[in-house]
Design a protein around this nucleic acid. Structure first.
Length: 461
DNA sequence: AGCATAATAT
DNA sequence: CATATTATGC
């Protein structure tokens, strides 16, 4: 088929090709494709739907509903949904429910715009988080982050190819195919467009909700409000007031959320050395064992894990959680929460919890995140810092503090690979330290250096 | 509601 | 191929 097409198509070749795979059909149709000879676009059922398509069927909870609040609440707290279709997709739905004003026409327009690709960055409106699904592979422009505007907009994004139907604002994407997603941003091609029009209920594929920081923010907020005990999917869902979100979605996220909390927080507590208790303990517990952490200076041995911004701490102030404030560099994504730690080409700093504590004034990070509140501390800053260190080392001669910082960082995040330039402590030194601290009986299985270093060494390969 | 696990995306 | 994230099943 492709070939055929190409032949007919002629010139644009290169691009078109890419597009094809990527997007699959989406774009072609709209205008030029009109020809019709072409791609029937198998996947998308384009049924026009004229009125509502209730999806019914599979979607049970989510989909249909909608309405209800929509405009009503406006930002204040419920973020209704502005629809952030970042990619161009989705708009239709949006308008369905969305604002009354000029929908139709504007929409159309938008689509077009989006098509050409301009839109995103410039627009303030939300293209926000689209985390470009597309970019991943191509590496196109990682930086396109558009600043998403904090306020409005909360609907979850979902990926779905045509997505569509749902009235949910949540954006979902689903690209069936891995790469397609063109997204808006970079891809020059005009792809996108149309998309929705066809919506279809039929496409009951699965769309994944993507928990953007905004969504997560809401989520956290809800959880906080409810309190641990009450934080239950259904309640959270209610509080969040995000259309399109289902209880399951929330439940799933909650699961993850809790997990993190458990893993991260607890660490701090347990973190204290395993008291020699009884030898009985086995290692069926992968948790952060005794990481090699000779307390060089047991004194200020890093108060581990103060607050981890990302997943919001128990008591934490909502405020700290969402702070996108920081400007420039990062794409919305990483942000403090490192929320979407998933991917970003430029940085992977997984940042699983950054130890964030009020960094000492002289802290090297200060420069990076001056006013960042406690939770602040962007990964990027840290990462860069760390990475750069080795290089500069010679020239610059890092202050001890810097080194210290790095070390602390490494220590506090044993699950991360050691930064360049750092090596895990030798078994001997570790054992020595342990004994110094009165922990003389080390279980045999720990004798093995591997065990001591575990995670970290394993990582790199 | 929660947990375990499948599915899937990167 | 490994990992991370979300969906699903029980």
């Amino acid at each position: 088929m492709l070939h055929l097409k190409l032949e007919k198509e002629e010139p644009n070749t290169t691009i078109s090709i890419e597009v094809e795979n990527l997007s699959g059909n989406k774009e072609n149709n709209h205008e030029q494709s009109a020809g019709s000879d072409k791609y029937p676009a198998p996947s998308t059922p384009q049924l026009k739907q004229g009125a509502r398509l209730l999806d019914d069927g599979d979607c049970q909870d989510q989909t249909n509903c909608s309405t209800e609040k929509e405009n009503g609440e406006q930002d204040g707290e419920s973020k209704s949904v502005e629809t952030t279709y970042g990619d161009s997709v989705a708009e239709e739905d949006t308008l369905l429910i969305g604002e009354p004003e000029m929908q139709a026409k504007s929409i159309v327009k938008e689509e077009e715009d989006s098509v050409d690709g301009s839109k995103n960055e410039s627009e303030s409106h939300m293209s926000p988080h689209l985390h470009n699904d597309d970019s991943p592979n191509n590496a196109i422009s990682p930086h396109l982050h558009n600043v998403d505007c904090p306020n409005n907009v909360i609907s979850p994004h979902l990926h779905n190819d045509d997505n569509s139907n749902n009235v949910m604002f949540p954006q979902l994407h689903n690209d069936d195919s891995p790469n397609n997603v063109i997204g808006g941003a970079n891809q020059p091609s005009k792809a996108s467009a149309l998309t929705n029009s066809s919506m279809s209920k039929s496409n009951r594929k699965k769309m994944k909700v993507d928990w953007t920081s905004e969504l997560h923010k809401k989520f956290v907020h809800a959880v906080e409000q409810l309190g641990v005990d009450q934080a239950i999917p259904s309640r959270i869902l209610e509080l969040m007031k995000v259309e399109g979100l289902t209880r399951h979605n929330v439940a799933s996220h909650l699961q993850k959320y809790r997990m993190h909390k458990r893993h991260i927080l607890p660490k701090e507590e347990d973190r204290r050395w395993p008291r020699p208790r009884d030898p009985v303990q086995k290692n069926y517990y992968p948790h952060q064992p005794i990481m090699a952490y000779p307390s060089y200076h047991s004194n200020h041995a890093v108060p581990v894990a103060p607050v981890y911004s990302m997943w919001g701490q128990p008591g934490n102030h909502p405020a700290s959680v969402h702070m996108w404030g920081s400007p420039a560099y990062h794409t919305p994504w990483q942000s403090a929460e490192s929320w979407q730690w998933k991917s970003f080409p430029g940085m992977h700093a997984d940042a699983w919890g950054c130890p964030v504590m009020p960094p000492p004034p002289h802290s090297p990070y200060a420069s990076y995140a001056p006013q960042v509140n406690v939770s602040g501390f962007h990964n990027t800053g840290a990462v860069n810092n760390v990475c750069s260190m080795p290089q500069n080392t010679f020239d610059v001669q890092p202050a001890e503090e810097v080194i210290d910082k790095v070390v602390k960082e490494a220590i506090s995040k044993p699950w991360l690979p050691l930064p360049l330039g750092l090596k895990p402590p030798s078994t001997d030194s570790v054992l020595y330290e342990l004994s110094r601290q009165g922990i003389s009986n080390i279980p045999p299985h720990l004798g093995n250096s591997d065990s001591l270093c575990h995670g970290r060494t394993l990582h790199h390969d």
